[in-house]
């Protein structure tokens, strides 16, 4: 059987006609799954999404996140969740999801007079 070398470049999507992928009888690429990383920067603040990374399991994802996202003292706590467990809203539905709120200004608490004593609202 003819052997092909498959070379992927940054930005290529495997099996989408990119790189040189002449044959389809190769073993499927067993890439590590993608994980989303959430970092709490300070005690008392909430975890914020900071990015994603590849890891073979949750334990490795935490360690990778430590090395990739907290090298400059960004955090005191890490959450990871496998990206496939996230459900995202569909950008095509953004209109019906979000636009109805646009003309309902009365939902904003802007019609109250704040006493001067209340700082930082």
């Amino acid at each position: 059987m003819k052997q092909f070398i498959k070379k992927l470049y940054y930005g290529d999507i495997p099996d989408a006609g990119s790189g040189t992928t002449p044959s389809n009888d190769q073993q499927p690429r067993t890439d590590w799954p993608l994980w989303e990383v959430f970092i709490r920067s300070k005690q008392g603040l909430d975890h914020k999404h900071v990015g994603s990374l590849h890891a073979s399991d949750a334990q490795m994802a935490i360690e990778n996140a430590r090395d990739v996202y907290t090298r400059r003292q960004e955090g005191v706590s890490i959450w990871v969740v496998e990206s496939k467990h996230l459900t995202a809203s569909n950008p095509a539905e953004a209109g019906e999801l979000f636009e109805p709120a646009a003309d309902k200004v009365y939902r904003h608490p802007t019609f109250y007079n704040l006493p001067d004593q209340v700082n930082y609202m």
Binding site: W32, L53, H54, A55, E63, N64, D67, V68, R71
Partner: peptide, 10 residues
Amino acid sequence: ILEQDIAITN
């Protein structure tokens, strides 16, 4: 892999 590259460099 990128993540391990960063880890070993750390």
